[in-house]
Structure formats: structure tokens, C-alpha cells
Design a protein around this nucleic acid. Structure first.
Lengths: 294, 294
DNA sequence: GTACTTCCATAGTCAGTGCCTATTGAACTT
DNA sequence: AAGTTCAATAGGCACTGACTATGGAAGTAC
């Protein structure tokens, strides 16, 4: 049973003539006759009575007609729905962001995108890198914003920006007045760091390692704001990316001057993953926020 | 958009693999891939993400899947319904019968058929020949039982039986004791006949005409039982077919011996009209009631 | 690391079939 | 009786869906 056979059948039913049906369906009359016969053969019943000049539905034809119409209607509806979803920059976009980026970077792009495409609904999942990658591969999120670089042959990435790192210390600290600092100067300082599954912890430890510094960790947290408060209270010092720098009366920030003491954030998508128009639009939107050489 | 494309699409969705889907659909894997691609092209969206080893529905695919399933289901349902109606000797049979046959001939065949096929539902329309023919040609009834012969190239007929005619007269009538009678003996008798649109009236007048008798009509009715009652009351005489003969204390019946003084009843269907299995069965059933040379 | 396996996509060929034109045959009209 | 107007039939052509063979990529086994 083929779609065009149903179309032809409905056309004959509605025009009451093979000839007129053929005209309507833009096909030669014998071709249409042939397809109707084939349909009748498959069903095992006659659908039309050919009574000389007139063609009329048989009882079976009358039973079959509404069903054929329904099927053609649903075929069209299915196609239309897909087209509808395709044409509109609307629908869901699920993104993932790590906690050390989310509150600093995301608000502005999100707000602007929502204003530009009110039909779009963006869903943000805040989680650590490892779990975000799982979700990305599982298709639960469409893209993720996290720290670069990332290993993985099944991924596609682009960088958003590279930020310098800052040492944060109590205002009264002896190094607090400097404009720049080398990490080796921080040797033996008590360190406050993020918890283990946060990638910026690794970043911080990595840059320290390059400066031959092994940080002595005295406090761990899941968010910078806790660390900032603790540093302000004089518990020790820490390292944060530029975007986490927030003026506080009890803290001072000093730029870290070491080579490669930076964090790069970027966007990652799954290679081969098909993105709808909204999803593509959001990706493009993020591109406009990338700042090369920064 | 073709039916097999929907089938393939569902197969891939359900097996999660082009290869397994191809096996299930008994088709080579490249053919299936090709059709899926074609479907995606027509819809203008990707339905699957091909992620290395795994294949997963895109958002569009998820939207399209239930619709595709529904369509395939309805396609099957449509076919099944027709098959169901075809296989079972069940459903409606609409027949027409003229009033001068209905009460005498029909009860037995109807009862036997209903007992044999309890699923069948027979609808009887009792009307005069002209209107029955209209209904037959309009497809409102499937066959008609009426007096033969019938002119019409678009008809198919077969005879059920030929009956002799009987003169009916009051028991006290001077001719009532005869075993046979010639119509010419009835000249000048007052006649009771059916109304004009009843074909047996024409039959009666026709046989009289052949005997050079012009009946003097004193009463007209739409049914034999009225005529019988009136004859019994002494109003006049009449002519009835054999099946209308019914023993009454006040009437006598005398066989009409004229050549060709008979009525033939038969069944008529529309040429080229498709009959369902019940309808065909009823027609065949009527055949078993035909009595040749009677 | 290398070979093997398992995917899906690509390339090229072939056969089935849906469509075409031309024609027939039947029924209706003039 | 000739002319129309139907649907069906006949025969030819081209599209396309299916096939086999192969390639490339990714995962698995040794």
C-alpha cells in the first residue's frame, strides 16, 4: 500500500471520475487506473463500481475512504510539524556550564538571547566538567561551556576567551599592595581551593606546579564566593580567574604574572550531533561573545 | 514521503542501529540508509545523530517517531478492517422486492439465510418495480426480486420461477367449479386489479389482451389480500399468480389455461456492481430457490 | 601497537515498476 | 449513424529503490 495510491483513491472518490482525478493528480489516466487496480488487488476487494460512465464507491470503498483521508492528513501533519519546528527559532536549548563560569559569564548572553528569540527556552544545567561531559554524550544537553582544553575525538570546541589569574589575599597581607606577583612568592602560604571535582582546582594546582609550588590546602569549597569570604577573614590566600574577581573591602587581588597562568573557557558540542535552528542560533550567539587575544 | 521510509525510520528508532534495522526489514543496509537520508532530505531535518557506533534520535526524530508509528498503525488498521469485512460473510445486504412477491416468496429464503449467516443483516425494501430500479441504479439496494423480463443493458438477471395464473372468483360464481378456464370466458366480468404502478396489473392486462379481453376494472388496490377479500364479498373477479393463492371460505381459484398466462419472477443486479461476500452469498442462496420448468 | 571487527556511508549496477502515449471498447449524446 | 467521453489495455521508457562491493571511522582483542 503506497501513499500515492491513497492519494489517487481519494481523488477518484472526490471527483467521481478517473479522468478528472488524473487531471487533479497531474498524472495520466491509465497510470491512475493502474494504481487503483493495484490497491484493490492488495486489499482483495473492489473499491469502485465502474458503471459505464459513472464511478461509485463500493461498500468497501466507503469504509476505506475515511481511513485513507485520515492517513493522508496525518502524513501532512507530521511533515508540517517538523517544518514548523524547523522554521521557527524556537524550542528547547539545553546547555551545561561549570560552576566557576556560570554566575560570571552566563547572565548577559542568556538575557540577550532570550530577548532576541523570545520563543526559545533555555535550560541551564550547572555541574562539574565530568558530569557535564556525560550528559553531553548522552544527548541530555546540546552544548557545554567549560574550561579548555578538552581531550576527546568526538568533540567540537571553540574558545570563548582566555583570562588571567589573580591571587586573592586579605587586604592586610604583606603582598597585597603589589601590582603583579609571581606564584613562587606564594610558596608556604596557606591555600584555599575548590573541591576536587572542580576543574579550576586542577588549573590552579597545575600553574603552581609549573612554578614549583605545592599549595598547602587549608580549606575547600564548591564556590568562589565562599573562598573569597574565607580569604577576607584571613584564613589564607587563593587563586581565581579574572571573572571571579569581585571587589570586597576585605580582599585584595594581584595579577599573577607567571607565563601561562591563565584559564581558557570555551564551548563544546558533540561531533555529529544535529542541532536544531535554535540550538544553532544559540551557538552562533555564543560565538559573538568570544574575545580572541584576551 | 513513502510508506517504506516510515517503516525504515521506525525500525532504526527501535533497534538503535541501521544494520539491525536493515536485517529486521529484510533489506540491505545501504538501501535503508539511502531511504532514511531521502526522508531527512524531504523533511529538511536530520532525524538521527550518527555518533560513531551509536545512532540516536534527534529532537526532530523524537517528534516524528510517534507520528510515523501512528501512520503505520492506521495503514495496517485500514487494511485489516477491509480484510475483516471481506473474510466474514457479514455485514449489510440491501434487497428490494415488489409487494406481489414479498409476503409469499421471501419469508423462507430470508429465514434460512439468517440462520446460516447470523452475522449478516438483511434489509428489505418493498416497493414497486420502477422505484426499486431507481434504487438499484443509485446503489441503495444490492439486488431486487421482481417480475421478469426486464429491459436494461446495465442489468444482470436470472429467473427464480415461473408460476401459472389463477382466476379468483366468489365461491358461488358460475365458473367456480371448473378445473381450468380460458380467459375469454371472463369477458364482461367486473375486474378487481392492482393499482397502476404495480407490474402485475400490467401482466394481468397483457394476458387479457392476448385473449381479446379488455377487463372492466371496478376496484383497485395495492395488495392482493384486499382484492381477495373484495372478491369474496362478491364485488367481481380477479387474476392472481399462483403464490398469492390462499384458501378462503368465500373464494374459488381456477387455473388459467391460456398459453403464456404466467408470471416469471427473478433476481436483478446491476452489471459491474461489486458485491461483498455476504451479498454474493445471498445471491447464491437465492439461486438455490430457483425452480426451472415450473 | 597492530590486526580484527563493527558500524554507517559511498559508488556503481541492475531490475522492477510507475508513468507515459496510443489505442480499444463500451456507453452515452447529437 | 457519427461523434464524444469514459475507463481499460498494450507497449515502451526512465526513474529509483535494491543490490554488491568498498571505504573510512571507531571500537575491541591480542
Amino acid at each position: 500500500m503506497e501513499v500515492h495510491q491513497l492519494r489517487y483513491f481519494c481523488a477518484v472518490s472526490e471527483t467521481g471520475s478517473f479522468t478528472r482525478a488524473a487531471e487533479r493528480e497531474q498524472v495520466a489516466q491509465p497510470s491512475l487506473s493502474q494504481q487503483i487496480m493495484k490497491l484493490e488487488e492488495e486489499l482483495g476487494v473492489r473499491l469502485f463500481d465502474r458503471l459505464g460512465r459513472t464511478v461509485r464507491l463500493t461498500g468497501f470503498g466507503q469504509v476505506f475512504l475515511p481511513r485513507a483521508r485520515a492517513i493522508l492528513g496525518e502524513l501532512k501533519a507530521a511533515k508540517d510539524e517538523v517544518a514548523e519546528r524547523q522554521s521557527a527559532v524556537a524550542g528547547p536549548v539545553s546547555i551545561g556550564v561549570i560552576p566557576t563560569i556560570a554566575p560570571y559569564f552566563l547572565p548577559l548572553p542568556l538575557a540577550l538571547f532570550s530577548r532576541k528569540y523570545p520563543q526559545a527556552s533555555i535550560n541551564v544545567a550547572e555541574d562539574v566538567t565530568a558530569r557535564l561531559m556525560d550528559r553531553l554524550r548522552a544527548g541530555q544537553i546540546d552544548l557545554a561551556i567549560l574550561a579548555m582544553p578538552l581531550r576527546g575525538h568526538d568533540l567540537e570546541t571553540f574558545n570563548l576567551r582566555t583570562e588571567r589569574l589573580f591571587a586573592i589575599m586579605p587586604r592586610a597581607h604583606r603582598l597585597a599592595k603589589k601590582r603583579k606577583i609571581m606564584l613562587k612568592e606564594l610558596r608556604d602560604q596557606p591555600f584555599l581551593l575548590l573541591r576536587e571535582d572542580h576543574c579550576f582546582r586542577d588549573t590552579a594546582i597545575e600553574v603552581c606546579k609549573r612554578a614549583r609550588v605545592v599549595p598547602k590546602v587549608v580549606f575547600e569549597s564548591g564556590q568562589f564566593s565562599s573562598i573569597l569570604a574565607m580569604v577576607g577573614a584571613g584564613l589564607g590566600i587563593s587563586i581565581v580567574p579574572e571573572m571571579a574577581v569581585e571587589q570586597r573591602p576585605d580582599c585584595s587581588y594581584v595579577a599573577v604574572a607567571d607565563d601561562r597562568a591563565s584559564r581558557t573557557i570555551g564551548v563544546v558540542t558533540l561531533k555529529g550531533r544535529y542541532l536544531s535552528r535554535v540550538q544553532q542560533a544559540f551557538l552562533a550567539h555564543l560565538h559573538t561573545f568570544s574575545q580572541k587575544d584576551n
